[in-house]
């Protein structure tokens, strides 16, 4: 029972991280139709930024969010302006190859800048609570709270602000949005910036739970893709649900099947994903665009 409770707590904590990681991916795909294969690499950039502030400036990792979010926003804005806006009206293959190129570029630049040695941040919040023999680490609890808060903020931004309205309009119909005077280029750039800022924040949470290395991005991209496919594009509550489901699969497989790391959960996820895509091409809850529309 204790084992089950512990696994459940771990799954919820991991699910919170996945949810924050995935909404940026889902937002960018939903609004621009770009499947960003460099997504996991942006998580890693955020993690390295956090590590840098922690190691060389001596900040608490959570405080580093103050730097990570604006820097990642600027980075995302720039990437969209310089690169993605040029290929946005082209078919998905172009953006897949371009973002794959970007992924390789970022991962290897990180390796050059920080070497391949795994890095860890230090935090004063390394304690934990024990509730009925179940360990609840303080850091992961804050992780979860922050993730939920940021998702709520994004949801408010999208539904309650003028900018959010413009983003939703651009997502629904690019041409019509242009016609009513929405600056599509800058709306897309801001959207990409927001998506990458959230992704970078997920990187901060990532840095607190495991060591950072330059090449850990790809499995994260794959998870983001799997979750988004399950939960539909730009669907925030769906992303939360999908993340929790994926995290539960990974954690329970890791707990109850001996000699298996969480990465083998990824294998299981992909089998499930392919089955879902074949049997329900519109996604588990609908809302997934057909590939040949």
């Amino acid at each position: 029972m204790t084992e089950f409770g512990q696994a459940l707590v771990n799954a919820i904590m991991l699910g919170g991280f996945y949810a924050l990681m995935v909404i940026g991916f889902s937002l960018i795909w939903g609004v621009m139709g770009v499947i960003n294969l460099a997504h996991g690499e942006f998580v890693v950039v955020g993690a390295y930024l956090t590590w840098f502030m922690n190691r060389h400036v001596g900040w608490e990792p959570f405080v580093a969010l103050v730097v990570v979010i604006p820097v990642m926003f600027a980075l995302g804005y720039l990437v969209q302006r310089v690169l993605i806006n040029r290929i946005i009206d082209r078919p998905p293959l172009v953006s897949l190859l371009v973002t794959y190129g970007l992924a390789i570029l970022i991962a290897n630049s990180l390796k050059l800048a920080f070497t391949g040695t795994p890095r860890s941040v230090t935090t004063a919040l390394s304690g934990f609570w024990r509730v009925a023999d179940v360990t609840i680490p303080v850091v992961k609890t804050i992780d979860l709270m922050l993730a939920l808060a940021m998702m709520a903020a994004l949801s408010l931004l999208l539904t309650r602000s003028r900018l959010g309205k413009a983003i939703r309009a651009a997502a629904q119909n690019r041409r019509a949005a242009r016609m009513v005077g929405i600056e599509i280029g800058s709306v897309f750039a801001v959207t990409f910036g927001i998506g990458i800022a959230l992704t970078g924040a997920a990187g901060t949470l990532f840095s607190l739970t495991q060591p950072i290395a330059p090449f850990v991005g790809l499995p994260l991209t794959l998870r983001a893709f799997a979750i988004t496919t399950m939960s539909g594009l730009g669907n925030i509550s769906g992303a939360l649900f999908g993340s929790m489901a994926l995290a539960a699969v990974e954690v329970f497989v890791g707990t109850y099947v001996p000699g298996v790391g969480t990465n083998l959960g990824l294998v299981a996820t992909f089998v499930v994903l392919v089955v879902i895509l074949i049997t329900r091409p519109q996604g588990l809850f609908g809302g997934l665009p057909p590939a040949e529309e």
Binding site: I35, L37, P92, L93, L96, L218, L222, F225, A226, T229, L266, T269, F270, L273, V274, L277, I278, P281, P290, A291, E292
Partner: peptide
């Protein structure tokens, strides 16, 4: 059976 980018990413996952 998957189309377009879905096939690409399923293969990345494989």
């Amino acid at each position: 059976h998957l189309k377009g980018p879905y096939f690409s990413i399923a293969m990345l996952g494989t």
